[in-house]
Structures are given as structure tokens and as C-alpha cells.
């Protein structure tokens, strides 16, 4: 069974949790109010066996503070679990973090599974300890951006804001 940590909440009310039913209800309420611009939804995920999640947690919190809704998967997720969570949660973008060197096997699998499930519109980016020579290969495999050590959270926020279009209701809610 997929398990995840609920980090992001609707800052408008604080009472809405991130499970799908309540999210849909909340969206409806907001839509009725004529408030069509919804928040960017992000899944931060830790594929593989790597337990180093300082960076993942810092980024999840920075994105939340920047007004996004963030779900953090917790550690030790398989690519299947991550892709399923991304679809179930209707996220716009997925951030993968790996420091164990397993990125070449794991990152492309997430993109591939999303594609197989018809969710190729979900953007996938990554970060961690990724040798520069691996970056072009990961980009070829469909990972849109790789952030290196020393990247500021501001840069990642800006990247997401520029690359995710949030007007209207996302596909998974339609």
C-alpha cells in the first residue's frame, strides 16, 4: 500500500486535508466562488533505498512556503509508487531526490511509467548527487531539469512557477 506524508494543506483554511475527496470538494467550493487559479501541486519523492531526505524535506517546505501544495512521499519509494501517487494526487510536477547514485535506473522509470499511464503531462525534475555527465542522459530520458548541490530553493520555486500552468482545473479533476 502506498503511504505518504501529508505536508501541504490549503493555506486558505487550514482545515482541508490533502486526501483526494476533500481536495475535490475544496476545488468545487473555490470554483463556485469564481476563484479559478488554483495552487500548483507538487509531489516530492525519494525513489530507491536512499534515506537522505534533508534536501527533499527542505525543498518540500520551501515550496509550501511559496504557496504550493506539496506532498512528500517519505523515503524508499519504488518508481511505480511514485508515479501512482503523482496521478492519484493530481500533481502538476514531480521532484525526485536521490543521493545514492541510483538515479540512472530510477528517474527514467518514473517518467516511463507516467507515460504508460497517460500522464506524460506531469513534469518530472530531479536533484541530489548527480554527476554532470549523467545530466544529458537523464534529460534524454524525459527528466526535464536536474538541480545540483548548492541550488537555492528560490531557483527551484522559480523553475516550477515558470513551467507549470495552473489556470483552470487540472486533468485529473476533470
Amino acid at each position: 500500500m502506498f503511504r505518504y506524508l501529508k505536508i501541504g494543506v490549503w493555506s486558505l483554511s487550514g482545515i482541508f486535508d490533502l486526501d483526494l475527496g476533500r481536495y475535490a470538494l475544496c476545488s468545487m467550493l473555490l470554483a463556485q466562488g469564481g476563484f479559478m487559479n488554483r495552487k500548483i501541486r507538487v509531489l516530492i519523492a525519494k525513489p530507491g533505498l536512499d534515506g537522505h531526505d534533508r534536501g527533499a524535506k527542505v525543498i518540500a517546505r520551501a515550496l509550501r512556503d511559496a504557496g504550493m501544495e506539496v506532498i512528500y512521499t517519505g523515503i524508499r519509494q519504488t518508481p511505480e509508487q511514485i508515479a501512482n501517487a503523482a496521478i492519484q494526487e493530481g500533481v502538476d510536477i514531480v521532484g525526485l531526490s536521490s543521493l545514492s547514485g541510483a538515479h540512472m535506473s530510477l528517474f527514467p522509470k518514473v517518467v516511463q511509467i507516467l507515460k504508460e499511464k497517460g500522464a506524460e503531462d506531469i513534469i518530472v525534475f530531479g536533484g541530489g548527487i548527480i554527476p554532470v555527465d549523467d545530466i544529458p542522459l537523464l534529460k534524454q530520458a524525459g527528466i526535464r531539469e536536474i538541480f545540483q548541490p548548492g541550488t537555492s530553493t528560490e531557483d527551484i520555486i522559480q523553475y516550477i512557477q515558470e513551467n507549470v500552468k495552473t489556470t483552470g482545473i487540472s486533468k485529473s479533476e476533470a
Binding site: 530507491g48 533505498l49 545514492s100 547514485g101 535506473s105 530510477l106
Partner: peptide
Amino acid sequence: DLPTQIGYDSDHPLADGEVGKV
């Protein structure tokens, strides 16, 4: 490596990509 630390042999599906890495 992580599979050794988490009790998986190198041929376990969850060891994929992690063998000998860290």
C-alpha cells in the same frame, strides 16, 4: 551499499540500481 544495509541481496528487485553504489 544500501541493499546490504537494508537486508536485500543484490538480485532483489529493490536493489535495482543501488548495488555497489554507496
